[in-house]
């Protein structure tokens, strides 16, 4: 259930385009037609699902403060988090290259439809942004990270397909000359973003942190209690025997 919440949230409420403006360059450049928009959107979902979990593993076992503990105790103090950017972008670039080769080899039909867009994705802010947000959100498991990657990819896909369709239609309307093209696209995106803001009420209650159980710390473990009871008992018996001795 939490995964479903995360999934819907990353598609609608924290939509890459409408809430954080990520991937705007390719969003504006490749949205003149629906067919190309679908191609790029699909490529983004694809790469996002691969790179976000991969970067999650990098973050968990290499970059975080203390992440190197699995190598041995002496590495526990290391903090490599300043390498985040360079490692994440290297992962993204190499994964894009790899995915391109694999797709070309095993799915030529998909390659022909995605072909031109795959290399473009290496410098798509949505991909790197997805990984950086993943790091910021501090997910507990790799499943959550994957679901987040999938959701944000789908959100991006929805946005670019929608604006592609609108731009195809708006060619037939009489836009003031100064706003034709880019200006109008921006304003339309703004209006769509206002629409998407209404999804904010869709999931409530997911954001609040679970109530903390801080009572436990102050309670003495039961083992110690029984120990101390024994001590009291023995002290009492000693005391009794002492008083007996005195009385005798």
């Amino acid at each position: 259930m939490e995964l479903l919440e995360l999934f819907l949230k990353s598609i609608f409420i924290e939509n890459m385009i409408f809430a954080t403006f990520l991937g705007m360059c390719s969003y504006l450049a490749v949205s003149k037609k629906v067919s190309t928009a679908v191609g790029l959107g699909a490529a983004v979902i694809f790469v996002q699902v691969i790179t976000v979990p991969l970067n999650y593993l990098l973050d968990k076992y290499l970059l975080r403060p203390g992440a190197l503990t699995w190598l041995g105790e002496e590495y526990a103090d290391y903090d490599l988090s300043f390498l985040t950017f360079i490692l994440f972008i290297a992962t993204v670039a190499t994964m894009v290259q790899l995915v391109e080769m694999i797709v070309e080899k095993f799915a030529p039909a998909l390659y022909n439809s995605l072909g031109i867009f795959l290399p473009l994705i290496a410098v798509n802010c949505a991909i790197l942004g997805g990984s950086l947000f993943m790091q910021q959100k501090d997910f507990a498991t790799i499943t959550e990270a994957t679901v987040y990657g999938l959701g944000s990819g789908i959100g991006w896909f929805l946005a670019i397909v929608a604006i592609g369709a609108i731009r195809e239609k708006i060619r037939y309307s009489n836009v003031p000359p100064a706003f034709r093209g880019l200006g109008m696209t921006f304003i339309l995106t703004g209006l769509m973003a206002i629409g998407f803001m209404s999804f904010g009420g869709m999931l409530t209650g997911g954001d609040e942190p679970a109530p903390k159980k801080d009572v436990v710390e102050n309670v003495v473990p039961s083992e110690e209690i029984s120990n101390s009871l024994e001590i009291i008992d023995s002290a009492a018996t000693v005391n009794d025997s002492l008083t007996n001795n005195i009385q005798e």
Binding site: F21, L182, G183, G190
Partner: peptide, 13 residues
């Protein structure tokens, strides 16, 4: 967020 887009659109126009 939306007003950033609209502001930029107006500047471009």
């Amino acid at each position: 967020a939306p007003m950033a887009l609209i502001t930029l659109g107006l500047i471009i126009g």
